[in-house]
């Protein structure tokens, strides 16, 4: 049987891509192999590790748990784009400054998840940060620098807001 395929239209990082893909190909592989967004990392392919987290239509999603055909018409944002946006750049800078990453393989997913947390909960406790990020596996850090970086970003944003007010 020949490989069943469909053409899909994906808007990735504000740019539209029309690609024909096997039905069985998950979005993470399409982003990486067909479109070159290698900042999307594949760690487990069964939805446990969180490395492939991207934003689909504004909501964080594991791109290994979505087939490309399901994402037809969706707007997708990956770390390559999000890390350069003003809404997340401070978080990225703090991750680097606080050494909240070592091998870096979890980092794109971790940063995108942490950004979503801060969007939902601008003033989290350390426990809330840990709970929210507990779907993102990091084998290198002790998670502490990650929690520190998120807390410092939140504090920095509060301070910036205070200055403006």
């Amino acid at each position: 049987m020949s490989e069943p395929r469909q053409s899909v239209s994906l808007t990735v990082n504000e740019e539209r891509h029309d690609v024909t893909v096997p039905n069985r190909k998950h979005l993470a592989d399409i982003l990486r192999e067909d479109l070159g967004f290698t900042g999307v990392h594949v760690g487990c392919e069964h939805g446990v590790c969180g490395a492939c987290t991207v934003r689909i239509d504004g909501a964080i999603t594991r791109s290994c748990l979505v087939f490309g055909v399901q994402a037809d018409g969706a707007e997708i944002e990956t770390i390559e784009y999000l890390s350069a946006q003003s809404e997340t750049r401070d978080l990225v800078d703090t991750f680097v400054a606080e050494n909240a990453l070592q091998c870096g393989f979890c980092t794109p997913g971790m940063v995108i998840s942490a950004a979503a947390l801060l969007a939902e909960t601008p003033d989290p406790t350390r426990e809330e940060v840990r709970a929210y990020l507990s779907g993102n596996y990091c084998r290198c850090t002790g998670y502490q620098a990650i929690v520190d970086a998120v807390m410092m970003t939140a504090a920095g944003r509060r301070a910036a807001k205070g200055e403006r007010a």
Binding site: G47, G50, T53, I56, A59, I60, T61, R62, L65, V66, S113, A116, L117, Y132, S134, G135, N136
Partner: peptide, 9 residues
Amino acid sequence: VAHPAVRNR
């Protein structure tokens, strides 16, 4: 139930 990214979908 699961984690935020899974709960979104």
